[in-house]
């Protein structure tokens, strides 16, 4: 079972119209997700990492069809669900669930925990003895069955996220999309939830799509990782390959920017690649390589003219760059001095 494809996404694109004033002419759109293709294999965790506004959450919502794609295709478990009607989608929805970032706003404050977790059974008319199932679920996620009649405000952030996990598990889905599930939690609690998810994955053979901006969390949970920038996947690889030798300069900059607890007691000795400038607007993304406006190894006349395609490296490793990073770790100066290309000609 493991290794075969559960979700296949091809050329997925989502544009959001920008609100226009009365006199505005022409249609402007936010290019939230642009031509994203990836597969999620049964039983694995696919991590999607990137900074705010890179389109990772939109991609997640497109996969479970909480949003209508502008273009492209989503195939779930052999069925093309890109244009399935909401009604026809219902049975499929049982098999894909979502866990959200904010455990405070994703639970209805006026319902008891029991009601919240039993809601999926009610919607899908699946369980006769919902009460017993809910108790089992509560126990499985590390809460006590006595919590059944309590309300969300009585729980801490970590416990609320456990409730969200129980609700996602209720219908025994195949796929769970976790959108920043631990970002709102303190580190000590974050580890509890990550371990819980790992255990559940083993026990129920779950497939996860795990969205996070946190590179350490992503490394801990993912088998494969997609790095997104401005709505596009710029690099996709096995977790170990990606962290041992990132190929895209953006991934390299991201990895080098993470502060690490084990240092020789402070200071900036480490080789950190600082990106210049700000994220370009997704309304008007750069032409050709989307990263060329901030890339330390941008070559004028090439990177700003010709869009790089995803290129294969060892194994399944792909990256979209004309001048990929040749070794790791690398300093900013070394990154600028790419071999075979003369600098300072511009």
């Amino acid at each position: 079972m493991n290794g075969e494809t559960l979700v296949e996404v091809q050329g997925l694109t989502k544009h959001f119209p920008v609100k226009q004033g009365v006199f505005a002419r022409g249609k402007q759109v936010v290019h939230a997700v642009e031509d994203v293709s990836l597969t999620v294999r049964r039983g694995e965790t696919l991590g999607i990492v990137g900074e705010s506004g890179c389109g990772k959450s939109t991609t997640a919502r497109l996969i479970v069809r909480l949003l209508e794609p502008t273009g492209g295709k989503v195939v779930f478990d052999g069925r093309d669900i890109t244009h399935t009607s909401q009604r026809a989608l219902r049975p499929v929805r049982q098999e894909m669930q979502m866990i959200f970032q904010d455990p405070y706003s994703s639970l209805n404050p006026r319902k008891s925990i029991g009601q919240i977790i039993a809601e999926p059974f009610k919607i899908h008319h699946t369980e006769k003895d919902a009460r017993t199932r809910v108790r089992e679920l509560l126990e499985r996620v590390g809460l006590s069955p006595e919590h059944y009649n309590r309300y969300p405000h009585e729980f801490s952030g970590g416990q609320r996220q456990r409730i969200g996990v129980a609700r996602a598990l209720a219908l025994q889905p195949k796929l769970i999309v976790c959108d920043e599930p631990v970002s709102a939690l303190d580190v000590s609690v974050q580890a509890q939830i990550l371990n819980l998810l790992k255990g559940l994955q083993r026990e129920f053979h779950l497939t996860f799509v795990f969205i996070s901006h946190d590179l350490s969390v992503i490394r801990q949970v993912s088998d494969r990782i997609a790095v997104m920038y401005l709505g596009r996947v710029v690099e996709l690889a096995d977790s170990e390959l990606l962290y041992e030798h990132p190929r895209h300069p953006y991934t390299a900059a991201l990895l080098s920017a993470v502060p690490k607890p084990e240092t020789n007691g402070g200071g900036y000795g480490r080789r950190r690649i600082i990106l210049g400038g700000d994220l370009p607007s997704p309304v008007d993304p750069p032409q050709a390589c989307i990263f060329h406006t901030r890339c330390p190894r941008m070559k004028p006349g090439h990177c700003d003219v010709d869009a790089p395609q995803l290129r294969k490296f060892d194994g399944d490793h792909v990256a979209a760059c004309h001048y990929p990073v040749e070794k790791w770790p690398i300093s900013e100066d070394e990154l600028r001095r790419r071999p075979g290309v003369e600098t300072g000609v511009d």
């Binding site: 350490s216 969390v217 490394r219 801990q220 993470v258 690490k260």
Partner: peptide, 11 residues
């Protein structure tokens, strides 16, 4: 705190 923190260095 140190033990519960995932790191980018290794899994």
């Amino acid at each position: 705190l140190l033990e519960s923190m995932p790191t980018v260095e290794k899994r």
